[in-house]
Simulated scan of single mutants.
Amino acid sequence: MDAEAVAARIVARAAVRGVTVAVAESLTGGLVAETLVRTPGASSVLRLGVVAYATEMKHQVLRVPARLLQERGPVDPEVAIWMARGVRQLAAIDRRACTIGVATTGVAGPAAQDDHAPGEFHIGIELDTVGGLVAESSSHVVRGDREEVRRAALEAALAHLDAALERTDLRMHSESTQ
């Protein structure tokens, strides 16, 4: 996948439709937001990017429930959904809504984390649609070094954003972030 080309397509399609995006990242450490920002015009689409690498930041900043983090740990599909929800809500802090929140969480390696193997990651997404909020996640396991795992998570997150833009029921929330 050419991540930069997909990011450019996401920005162009979102801008035309008046759709805004917020990104919460753990294992990708800002890579998703940075890839979107490389595209001219990203300021009309990307409202917020948060790197919540530490577990307590997932709870304190993104409002992932403490009980969920205690029971399942940070490497979990439900945690990814909560991260996406939290960043979408944070992006609306100025009372402007945000259409899509997307999040990455997982283990880049080289060692396992809390019984999760290197290469395991989860993508969460929450969409503001005319019918209400829609949340979903996907789980992945890839082989490779840290950068290969992070790149796979970037590509998966961009694929989720790209697929979300196929929906015809997304709410429009276009506001320039400049």
Rank of each mutant, 00 (worst) to 15 (best):
E71Q: 15
P40W: 00
R171I: 09
V19D: 03
G109Q: 13
S138Q: 04
R13A: 15
A152T: 06
V6R: 12
V87T: 08
A54V: 09
R95N: 07
A159K: 10
D128A: 14
L154Y: 06
A80S: 12
A80N: 09
A156Q: 05
H116K: 15
L158Y: 02
H59L: 02
A42W: 12
S174G: 12
R96M: 12
R95C: 04
E56A: 09
A12R: 03
G41L: 13
G41K: 04
Q89P: 08
G124E: 01
A80L: 15
P118T: 10
A111Y: 01
G86F: 10
C98H: 08
V79S: 11
R63F: 04
A153H: 02
M83V: 09
S176A: 13
L127R: 06
H59I: 03
P77M: 12
G30W: 04
L158K: 02
A15M: 00
L158G: 11
A159M: 03
A108C: 06
G18V: 07
H140T: 04
T35M: 09
E136C: 11
A22P: 00
R38A: 14
G101I: 14
E175L: 13
G101V: 13
R47P: 03
A153R: 03
A97K: 15
A159D: 15
V64P: 15
P65Q: 04
T28Q: 10
L68C: 07
A54K: 13
V23F: 03
P118C: 15
R47W: 00
G41V: 09
P65W: 04
V107Q: 06
A7Q: 05
I10D: 02
L27V: 04
I93D: 09
V149M: 05
E155M: 11
S137D: 01
D76N: 14
G109C: 12
G41F: 13
S176N: 07
V134C: 01
R95V: 13
T39Y: 11
A5T: 01
M57H: 15
V51K: 13
T168F: 05
G132K: 00
R17M: 01
P74R: 00
G131W: 13
E155W: 01
A8V: 06
P74T: 07
R150M: 08
D169Q: 10
A33D: 02
L46P: 11
E25D: 01
L68G: 10
R88C: 03
V21S: 09
E147L: 13
C98Y: 06
R72M: 03
I123H: 11
L31F: 14
L133W: 03
C98E: 09
Q60Y: 08
A152W: 12
M172A: 12
T177S: 12
R95F: 07
M1C: 08
Q178E: 11
A66R: 13
A163G: 06
E155R: 08
V87C: 08
A157E: 11
A80Y: 05
S26P: 11
D145Q: 00
E136R: 06
L48P: 14
W82F: 14
P74C: 12
E71P: 02
A112W: 04
E147Y: 00
